[in-house]
Amino acid sequence: MKFAQLEGKTVVVAVENIDTDQIIPARYLKSITKEGLGEGLFRDWRTNDPEFPLNKPESKDAQILVAGDNFGCGSSREHAPWALTQYGFRAVVSTSFADIFKGNSLKNGLLPIVVPADVHKELLASSGAVLRVDLANATLHLPSGKSVVFPIDPFSKECLMEGVDELGYMLKQDAAIQAFEAKRVGSVNTLQ
């Protein structure tokens, strides 16, 4: 999936440290496919709280999730970005992301956007704002006219924009892997 421009509406979940057990509770992890996870997204919060932002009619079709610091902490489950994208999100904005979640998102066409605290504050206060993401220039445009450059490593950016398949890229380095294996000492052999 290629990712270039995105213009989308936000929905704000102003909670810090949203962990992957909230994003997709463990009982949804029994699937052996990637399908059907959207309905599990924030399942318990959506069920228990009629006021939960995703339950509000105006947040329908929101493509950008704005959340508190350290989004995606906890488990390595890739089901978290799968659930977010299947629900319809294409980007998450926060001041910071947990490492594994960030890596998993980038591999699934979900863009983690880190913004400074003042921009974050502005976004938290304006749920439903329409933001424009210009990935080529790694820039987020706010309705106020403000724009902010967000960090993204060049490789991930290229993969997202060109739809580069990381595994394909790795498989092409087979010769280097073979050379490394030839001189490698001290591995175990689990088949022994």
Partner: peptide, 13 residues
């Protein structure tokens, strides 16, 4: 810890 895509990467490469 790694995600499932990376599990695939390790299995293949």
């Amino acid at each position: 810890g790694i995600g499932t895509s990376q599990v695939g990467h390790v299995l293949a490469t």
